[in-house]
Amino acid sequence: MTADTTRRQLLAGGAALGWFCINGSWLQSTPAQAQADGFAPQHLSVAQCSAMNVIADALVPGAHVAGIAAYIDSQLSAKNDSLLLVKYLGVPTTAQSGFYRPALDSCIRLLAADGMTPQLALTAMGEDAVSDWQGPPASFFSFVLRADALDVVYGTEQGFARLDIPYRAHITPKKPW
């Protein structure tokens, strides 16, 4: 599967609709399409979303196009209905915003350092070797963000198809999340 094919397929996930603020208007869209159209995050800053896209894509290629930022931002807005995996790891829905925001601010600083690349950033985060890191431990945040990225890239019918796994739903999800 080529990168272009993957991108087209992700953007064409027509049933996966949610409400996103795009160019000042609330529109129904897929997270991937919302990402492509430049959605306006409601919970995170644009800079935080950009840093997330870079790190998540380095962890799980395709996360950016699949709409990782739109996914996380929409789930943080969902409050008690959040479907983020981190709730399993001791971060209740009420505390999830405080989990992502400071860590993403740390990612912004990390990525801005001289000579920094996404791969070097991953290594430093994995070793908890980031000076002035704020938020949850960098290695833990990296683990969680990678799991989130796995959700958006591989946790859907399209993602299963990428891995040649028959989805065989009993009740097919009307949208991926």
Binding site: K87, T93, G155, T156, A169, T172, P173, P176
Partner: peptide
Amino acid sequence: LISSQIWARRLKWS
């Protein structure tokens, strides 16, 4: 009971 590990998280303690 939607066939999705993501949606399944609704079934857990909230």
